[in-house]
């Protein structure tokens, strides 16, 4: 009992540090003007995706072995939906942008 409490505390701490880092990086880049152009967007996007994974792994304790299948199912479903929504929106907006040139 105590042992597992210790362990989960340390994972929360690791997760917290990683989450802060992944938040600080994009802010620093934009505020400090360290990067310009499309590269900024790429870094921000990667940091955001990693942030999601950090939350899932360190705060919600999701892993491929011990998490019940139905929870994993919902996660995969969420990923598919996010792909449809974000991908679809990008496609639609790019297409409109292109036609307004």
């Amino acid at each position: 009992m105590n042992h597992s409490a210790d362990r989960s505390q340390s994972t929360y701490l690791t997760g917290f540090v990683l989450a802060v880092l992944l938040t600080a990086i994009p802010f620093a880049l934009v505020w400090g003007g360290l990067l310009v152009g499309p590269a900024v967007y790429a870094v921000i996007a990667v940091a955001a995706v990693l942030q999601v994974i950090v939350h899932l792994v360190f705060f919600l304790h999701i892993d491929l072995k011990s998490t019940p299948v139905e929870n994993l199912f919902f996660l995969v479903f969420a990923a598919v939906l996010i792909f449809i929504m974000v991908g679809g929106s990008l496609w639609i907006m790019m297409d409109l942008h292109h036609r307004m040139q």
Binding site: W91, I92, D95, L96, H98, R99, M100
Partner: peptide, 8 residues
């Protein structure tokens, strides 16, 4: 009718 291309 917002103006997407025919493909979309």
């Amino acid at each position: 009718t917002m103006g997407s291309s025919a493909d979309v």
